[in-house]
Design a protein around this nucleic acid. Structure first.
Lengths: 164, 164
DNA sequence: CGGTATATGGTATAGTATAACATATCAAGC
DNA sequence: GCTTGATATGTTATACTATACCATATACCG
């Protein structure tokens, strides 16, 4: 695991290095890293939480970068399809990738109390899904692996409910 | 794995035994297995595919069992919260449980071609999510594990597109 | 049989996502 | 530099998914 947002870290560094990685990748692959796409990634990098498409749209709208849902969805589709962001199925929401460049099979830990999400990089060939697929002769193309629960900080203060 | 819907099996048996298991469990736990709940489970058992809440509502409506979305969602919530059905996050849809009674951490294999879904029962303590959670001091309460790809039958006939 | 919890029926609305079409911009070759 | 084809943006309208809320009915228990 590279960055653990459940604990203290250089957060300004998350944003700037995330943007730099994305610029480099887009240049290398001949992709257009347009202002809207860049800004959406920046918004996602600004939080270690998953943001809904409409949360992002609200920001874009306030900044005059686009007012209609397709603007946000298109930018998110671009980021997700090039591995710069991930969709969290359980939350119908999106989060910046924390492992850009590495080929990975991401898994996510989602804290129900503080809402933060950590991306854990895992071995694509390992795990229960791969074993079950082997047994059934099933060819995996994409996996969704998300755990909900409490991060260590929230468990300390809160065994059941959800404060902020 | 108990039943593999990707291959031939006694499908009438899926339905009748699924209903019987549910009756038994509801009786044992003092739950009301009402007509709507029973019918929704039966509809789900009739397919090894995930059905959307509105697909189910359509059937209920045609049969005079309820016409509004909350009717379907309430029955589905009941079934899911008692382990008689599962929600497939990736599809925003629902499927009957194929392992009723066993305490389990289900994982799903979803064929993008024939749309069938198989439930694989796995060891809750194993896998990449559990390892990542241990590393981070995270307490898992629920997991989502879904793989998308091609089942063996569909891979044979179709390497890329989706026929039926 | 009266009271409390649970289930049903319904209206209205919130939240998530995409189809379809028009316009603009980019990137490359001539 | 201009044409051309591909890519990106802007917008309208609508489809799909889900829940809050209120009223009524039924079930279960003392």
């Amino acid at each position: 695991m590279t960055i653990d947002p459940f604990h203290a870290h250089d957060h300004a560094g998350c944003i700037s290095s995330g943007l730099k990685m994305a610029e480099r990748q887009c240049a290398a692959e001949g992709l257009q890293f347009t202002p809207v796409r860049r800004r959406v990634l920046e918004i996602l990098l600004g939080e270690h939480k998953a943001l809904g498409a409409y949360d992002i749209l609200e920001v874009l709208r306030a900044e005059g970068l686009g007012a209609q849902p397709p603007v946000a969805y298109r930018a998110l589709d671009f980021l997700v399809s090039h591995g710069l962001a991930h969709r969290i199925e359980r939350l119908n929401a999106f989060i910046a990738c924390m492992h850009t460049g590495q080929s990975h099979a991401p898994a996510f830990l989602i804290c129900r109390s503080c809402k933060r999400v950590v991306e854990a990089d895992t071995d694509p060939g390992a795990g229960e899904l791969a074993r079950a697929a082997d047994d059934a002769g099933f060819t995996i193309e994409r996996t969704v692996r998300e755990a909900l629960g409490l991060c260590s900080g929230c468990r300390a203060g809160d065994a059941a409910g959800a404060p902020a």
